[in-house]
Design a protein around this nucleic acid. Structure first.
Lengths: 216, 216, 216, 216
DNA sequence: GTGTAATCGAGACGGTACGTCGAGTCTTCAG
DNA sequence: CTGAAGACTCGACGTACCGTCTCGATTACAC
């Protein structure tokens, strides 16, 4: 859930930085975007959400905690939701990457176990739940959440299952999209209602939905 | 989603009204709770949510729309979430009651189809999604939402499946709780991300998770 | 420059108070205007202007100092200028009332002396200078300043001179309006440029402009 | 009120320009002060003041309108008031110079008539009124306004009257300073309160205050 | 009957956060 | 060394709701 100042700028397109004087970090502000401010905002938002909940996640509180002016936030992010999206994208890619390349039955199962742990144990998982929630309240949030996170990730997950199917390591009786929902849905749902998602549950789902039947 | 003034008062304990003056609505205020005000508040909350989203659902807007003083709302409901809970409980019991008594395989399937339609098509379903969302933001909401809605309903659903199992009309390979999540989870999840939940999807889930295997 | 809580409400028309429980002052707020808040705002504005100048006279600072919410100020005053106008009107009527009734040559002279002292010595005089200044910057200010203060006062001054003329105690060679400007103008002008306005100067003006010529 | 690029630089000390490239205005910027930028700023300030009032006279608006960077303004002027002072000094010397040399009674009267017209009719007169106003709000403004404009001009006016007195063309009964205030004060005062200053009023003041009495 | 008590609409109050604007400082880059 | 560009911190703007309060009117029940 931590972001360091050396990660590239995820917001907007002007992502390249003039390498940022390796030492120093004393050349603050000027004509280019201040990377330190950007990271401070992401951290502050994260921390506030985890420590005090979404209700305490106001632009003013973020600015206060990040030691940054409100205007700096408004300049780069259209809403606090986009701040959370920025952190979520970095964190989920880092903590639960969708496996690429060769895939086994265990690979699928382990990914889902990891995803369940991310959702219920990792502070960054709380960001995902929060965004799902906020998407219910605000169509704008729903839009960019789908476009920037949910769509791409679902594509990767679908692709993972497609490769597993091709490799013959799974044998679902439902279509690919249905299988994605049948696996991810229960995990997310339990996380949303505050229930645990033990490995055994994930394993049972995987077993029931993906395992080739021994018959014939 | 409509509540009429003849429904009993779900909040507080003094629920019965003295028959409400047949001819009028001109004898305002007095010593007893004003049923018309109660209903007006529930309607106003509903309407605002459906028409303008959760962001527009403020106590002041509800009071304005209901033609009621803010204090009247604060007197009877601890938060706007409780208002939504009141409407949700009435509506979901009315629109998608969990079947009781004798249960068949089709009965289970039809209930889930109805629940999916409620979530994605009925305005009252939006209230449920909204409450799931708000429960992520606020522990208080989470508490009463579980206590007053989610817990009881899950118990009923679990009971439904237990009776179906006893009757031998379903043959799940997962435990009862897992089956509830495996069925309800995908439906809720798709509704949350704005996707449709066609009957075919519900049927496929039911078929894959509950149907006795023909093997041997 | 001090206003006590027993003065009537000058803003708006709803001026009558239910006598305000003589003792107590513990019945704060309700559904009538809070007199204590009104007075606190006037005092705070006054004090800030005198102590730190017009630049420090922000709505937020007034609210802070008065221990009042910003909204309370915006509810009752359209701008901070109107707050100053309220204090000015009360103070100038109290500190330099235009004499009424019988008038003598000395009466005119003393009024002008008092007015000069008010402008240059009294903190409330600074309010007047500030309003003249702000009227240059903002047409709205100019409007209400003329309507609520300058017009009425000029009428009174003109009337004073008219009565003096009728009584034969002055003999100006200019018209009444010209005389008002010729007397008041220099006083205000010197106050504006930060110069003193000694009695001798006032006397000289009065003598030169109003005294009957000894010549036959 | 217009300043052309050939006028000398009044601000700072490096006033001479390297003749300003005869053929162009295409060799922008370099290591000498850019005269075009200076003039553009003065014009922009003037125009904004006249067109939209003092409230619209912000550094950012001036920079925007002048097509100049904020820093360029901050580099050369300590405040926006000094920009106005620069334009005022040039304009008032050009539009209402205090007469020098031989002086007649008519010369004094005509000067005051011109001054009155400048204050009430000329856009540049608005700059003077604005500065008088702003001097009430800010001691810094008051300081440089007196030093750079008010003091010198009053000296010239006093000197004018002194020469007229020596020449025997006026016969005031008040001291020189009092006469200056008695003449200028009413004019400025009426301009400040938005009243007209007709020639007849000026003439009456001159007549009453300066004309030798026919007595005996 | 006549208090007494609880209701209701209305709306003022002290607060907090909103999203915007301008101030004045600083840094980069091009001439 | 200049000027244009523009990011930065800071603080005020005027608005919207929050949750609490006090009012005056209304109505039912207990005495």
């Amino acid at each position: 859930m931590r972001l360091d100042a050396s990660t590239p700028l995820p917001t907007g397109t002007l992502s390249r930085m003039p390498v940022v004087n390796s030492e120093s970090r004393r050349a603050r502000s000027g004509n280019r975007r201040d990377e330190a401010a950007r990271v401070a905002v992401l951290h502050a938002a994260d921390d506030l959400l985890v420590e005090h909940g979404f209700g305490a996640l106001t632009i003013e509180a973020i600015a206060r905690r990040a030691g940054v002016a409100k205007q700096t936030i408004y300049r780069w992010w259209p809403s606090k939701v986009e701040i959370l999206l920025d952190t979520l994208i970095e964190d989920s890619d880092k903590h639960v990457p969708v496996p690429t390349g060769e895939v086994t039955a265990d690979g699928v199962r382990d990914y889902l176990r990891g995803f369940a742990r991310f959702l219920t144990g990792d502070p960054a998982g709380k960001v995902l739940l929060t965004l799902i929630a906020q998407a219910q309240h605000d169509p704008g949030t729903a839009g960019s959440f789908h476009e920037r996170y949910l769509g791409p990730r679902r594509d990767q997950e679908r692709d993972l299952l497609a490769r597993a199917l091709d490799a013959g390591v799974i044998a679902p009786r439902l279509g690919l999209d249905e299988v994605v929902d049948a696996l991810v849905g229960p995990i997310v749902y339990r996380a949303l209602v505050g229930a645990a998602v033990p490995d055994a549950l994930v394993d049972a789902l995987v077993d029931d939905l993906l395992r080739p039947r021994p018959e014939s």
